[in-house]
Nucleic acid binder design. Structure first.
Lengths: 408, 408
DNA sequence: AACCATTTATCTATGGGTTAGATTTAATGT
DNA sequence: ACATTAAATCTAACCCATAGATAAATGGTT
């Protein structure tokens, strides 16, 4: 596949996206403010806004009188345009979140999933249940739904549809999923979702390059370059969790040895602790999220358990080295961190990781690198996959061209 | 730094580049052929060609009569437009290559450099010597030179200018270099150079993503995405040689432990052999290029030395694992290999590496990945850095806009 | 020798994009 | 009432690409 050609239509498409992003992050803005925020001329903003107004994507939300002069009409994304659902299918739970068309969260629902019970029909049924619960709580009718985004772990790609790093039979049968949902569905993987969330609701558009790391059961990277998500030739880019940290190191659940995930995934952190203090009570905690939570509380105590402190130190070192590899290869302007490990351990982990990255990165590459906890609120996977569904919808409306490279 | 805005001028700039690339790879072509090759309309090609004709970049090289009909005017890049010099500054030598404006090689000169004699004045003097020798051999006057490209190892970046992975005092003083040469100079690092060469003279433009690996004393990756070189926030992207292969592994000359370069750089391969057979005569060969050459001859024998075979196997494994990391993170459509290690060992190494990458890459990510020896002839670093100088010249002429993001 | 068919290159009209600057609109202040 | 001010829109100019008409140049045909 050769390089894609850009046409002047794509420029308009990008201008529309820029205006929508500016509006999303500002909440409400006048045309003039949008022009200043996007760098476009007021004339262009006016025509773009009129496109979006006639598509019902934005609304005029009243006039505000300034000191003197013509009053400014305030613009907002039109939440009432419809509903978008984002569904985060994780290893142990499925969470469905309903958003309005301005990407404000309305309601959510979560169902537990038995990790060892992975048949397609079972998972699809649980997913449908989460979707219906969430819609009911949001008071949304099926007709209101503009699109449903589903994030599945593992690489999603055409034509094989889903190629899994961690095998799970359910994802080979997307047709059943579509049939059962009966609404416009887009499927992608969590890394592309968090990157999209960062691009619309976070830092992605303020920097020419950014990587967002998802740390939980699995770990991975969402890579954003020049305002676009790096998907790679097979939509596989960002599987940093399965890049090598240690040759012939710990066995990873993907089958390979020495993957980053085997060290800084939640189970990997537990293994680190078990290596330091095999008899430690936390080392045998069966639930990953409980384990991470307990680790956080242990660290918060006045004089923490040395084994716990050492676990954090080593994890910071592993993570620092793995992030340094990303710096060496991609050299991003900033890195954001997300995922439930970060929500729980961030206060202790992030400062240590910052120090480690500077040490481990080649030369002074990381000297000016910003490493921050993501500013995206809520579940970024659900937010991101819903955003991808919204992008797909906008593309179907003819408002977007090039920027809808969703996987499926 | 935010995302850069694209304007319609950039589209024309890309069209001009596309036409020039098509012309470079075809050697000679009619306007119609260029239209077919680029996917542009004949009208656009005609206007672009007339721009390039009036800039003297292309020439009409005679008419050819077909069977019937109006004869086709053949177009070529105008080599007589001037001369471009590419200078590859390596650890042990400096090579200057003179090209005509159609990027055909005219002459070259090489001077040896004492690795331990790294003062700025010394290196600059050697470089100037190589440049003058090459110009003389090419019969080129200084006035003919449109630009000089200098490739320096290590990251080159603003504002610190050159930030070295492997320290060398000389590169802190680019002003002296510029003063001594007295011609338009661009400086960049070898990874960006090989990527540029791949983009103009190789496979880069036929694929939406491509990585070219340089294997020699140092190792690194040139990353090409959507027809553009990935430079990163500090022009540091592609320093894959200093990403981690083995935590706490072999000490690397960059100071870190376990870098890819410490395993698959020429010195690393020798260390692998020394680990297998400490008394092996090749293990104490003092010159790296001699060592690699001797390894290649040993492998070509009917029944090769088992230590040598084992060295190749392990190197393939290291390289396969390191490439698998690139696949996991970037997921390119193809990978090309270059550098003198590849020229010498490619026949034995590449097939083994291909197998290893498929095994080591997560899931079936590498199943369709093409791994080939680069088709760029000659010294790709010199070719690439000369091409960057040509791009800079075209930019100064007003023929190119966005695509001249050279470092210095 | 005049004319037709054929192939290549250019010209023209159309449509999409952006923008600076003029103009209109709608408030406040005197 | 009228000037002032600020926001939004309109207008004209200038980019870009393309389809389709037109012109150019030749070999073959009558």
């Amino acid at each position: 596949m050769a390089v894609t050609r850009r046409t002047s239509r794509d420029i308009r498409s990008e201008s529309r996206l820029d205006v929508m992003h500016a509006l999303l992050s500002a909440g409400a803005a006048s045309r003039g403010e949008l022009a200043r925020a996007t760098g476009l001329s007021t004339a262009t903003v006016a025509t773009v806004v009129s496109d979006l107004l006639s598509g019902g994507i934005v609304t005029e939300a009243g006039l505000t009188n300034g000191r003197v002069g013509r009053p400014t009409t305030t613009l907002r994304l039109n939440g009432d345009r419809g509903r978008i659902v984002g569904i985060d299918v994780a290893e142990t739970y499925i969470r469905a979140v309903v958003f309005d068309a301005a990407l404000d969260e309305l309601a959510s629902a979560e169902v537990a999933v038995d990790e060892h019970h992975g048949e397609a029909d079972y998972v699809v049924a649980r997913l449908a249940r989460a979707l219906e619960d969430a819609l009911e709580r949001a008071g949304a009718a099926r007709d209101d739904v503009l699109g449903v985004g589903v994030s599945l772990p593992g690489g999603t790609q055409r034509p094989a549809e889903v190629s899994v790093v961690v095998p799970n039979a359910a994802w080979r049968h997307l047709d059943r999923l579509r049939e059962r949902i009966g609404l416009p569905v887009v499927v992608d993987n969590p890394l592309k979702a968090i990157a999209t969330a960062e691009l619309w609701s976070g830092e992605g558009r303020r920097h020419s390059s950014m990587i967002t790391l998802n740390l939980g059961t699995g770990v991975g990277a969402g890579i954003v370059l020049e305002g676009a998500i790096l998907r790679g030739a097979r939509n596989f880019a960002g599987e940093w969790g399965h890049s090598l940290l240690a040759l012939d190191g710990r066995r990873c659940r993907c089958g390979r040895a020495g993957c980053v995930e085997a060290y800084v995934g939640a189970a990997g952190i537990q293994r680190t602790l078990a290596g330091i203090a095999p008899e430690h009570p936390l080392a045998s905690e069966p639930m990953q999220r409980e384990f991470i939570g307990a680790l956080a509380s242990a660290l918060a105590r006045p004089s923490p358990d040395p084994a716990v402190t050492e676990t954090l130190e080593r994890t910071a070192r592993y993570l620092g080295a793995a992030i340094a590899d990303l710096v060496a290869i991609v050299d991003p302007e900033m890195i954001t961190l997300t995922g439930w490990t970060v929500w729980a351990l961030g206060d202790h982990l992030v400062p240590a990781v910052r120090r480690r990255v500077v040490e481990e990165a080649p030369g002074d590459a990381a000297a000016e690198l910003a490493i921050e906890v993501s500013t995206v609120r809520g579940n970024p996977v659900a937010t991101g996959i819903a955003t991808i569904a919204l992008e797909r919808f906008l593309g179907d409306m003819g408002l977007l061209t090039s920027r809808v490279p969703t996987a499926l």
